[in-house]
Computed example of a mutant assay.
Amino acid sequence: MEVVGRLVALLVVLVGGAGVRAIGVLDDRRTALLNDLAYYVALPALIFVSTFDRSIAALLSPALLGGLLLVVFGTAGVAWVVHWHRDSSARRSVAIVQSYHSNLGYLGLPLVAATFDPTVTAIASVVLGVVSLTQVPLTVVILSSLNAAGATVTGELRRLATNPVLVTLLAGLTIGSLGLGVPSPVAVGLDAVGSLALPVALLCVGASLDIDRSSIDAATTAAVVACKVVVMPALAWLVFSALAVDTATFIASVVMLGTPTAVSTFVFASELGGDPEFASLNVFVTTLSSIATLFVLITLVG
């Protein structure tokens, strides 16, 4: 029942974000400020307190790295086959990338931190870093190549190098690996700030959703949902079961890879020649669908 309560609360805050945007409480400027709070403050704080007392060797194993790469590229391959027949390249490219590009930072890591113990959260932080460094360049390549867009992988990698989430992850793992301490008051303060990550991020996701009836393509969206919140976590379950990783690694990997499509795919679609309205719809539907699928995943692994 505790898991049900957490996911119902997630849904309430998500819908609440859309509601306060609809009545004008969260306009574009306020939503942007709230998004900055989550992205530059709350989420980095959560990542740092999850990793600063742990060494990278204890968290990132060859099995974890290989398993994550296999699941991401495997799901992308399935999505390519499923969506390749779509007539519109703009819609086809979006459907492919949204079938594997996971919302690890705004939903995955905060949900894991709120549900499981610190060991699982620390590994989930590493999952976030590894998969982000994989899925962002892959998404840029697919959108750019299918839509003849001008963005480069090099440019996106340069942006990743200054990404606050990845910088904080590297800082936390460095301090943990070197055995350096962090004053207790600082750790407690950062922990309090990090607890804001999930509710603030959910408000941002809800406020960012923009559904245009003309963009509805039920069959394609259903295929995106099936790939993202059913096929990808199922593949993760099979891969990490076969790799016989420890329980914490298994839980962190399966739950993180079972998260819905990232809101950032809407931004990538807008910038790289994709169909932004279709992208927004898929973010909304995969997020709502993940309430049920994440409940099943968390119940099974927990």
Rank of each mutant, 00 (worst) to 15 (best):
L11T: 00
A18N: 12
G19V: 13
I23L: 15
G24P: 09
D28G: 13
A32F: 10
L33P: 06
D36F: 05
L37C: 11
A38W: 03
A38D: 09
Y40E: 13
V41D: 01
A42H: 04
L46H: 06
T51M: 09
A58W: 07
A58M: 12
L64M: 10
V72W: 05
V72Y: 00
V78P: 02
A79Y: 06
H83V: 07
H83Y: 01
H85T: 15
S88T: 10
V94D: 02
Y100T: 01
Y100F: 15
N103P: 04
L104S: 02
L107P: 04
L107Y: 12
L109D: 08
F116D: 00
D117V: 01
A122K: 00
A122R: 04
I123R: 11
V126F: 10
L128S: 04
L128M: 13
V130H: 03
P137E: 00
L138D: 04
V140T: 11
L143W: 05
L146V: 10
N147E: 07
N147I: 09
T154E: 14
T154V: 14
L157G: 03
N163I: 10
L166E: 04
V167E: 00
G172E: 05
L173R: 04
L180G: 07
V188W: 00
D191V: 10
G194S: 05
L198I: 05
C204S: 13
C204I: 15
S208Q: 11
L209S: 11
D210Q: 13
R213K: 13
A223S: 14
A223H: 11
K228E: 08
V229W: 07
V230C: 12
P233I: 04
A234M: 10
V239Y: 01
F240D: 06
S241P: 04
A242K: 02
V245G: 02
T247H: 15
T247R: 15
A252M: 06
V255P: 01
G258V: 03
T259G: 06
T261I: 08
T265N: 12
F268G: 05
A279C: 13
L281T: 11
V283I: 14
T287V: 11
F295V: 13
L297H: 01
G302L: 12
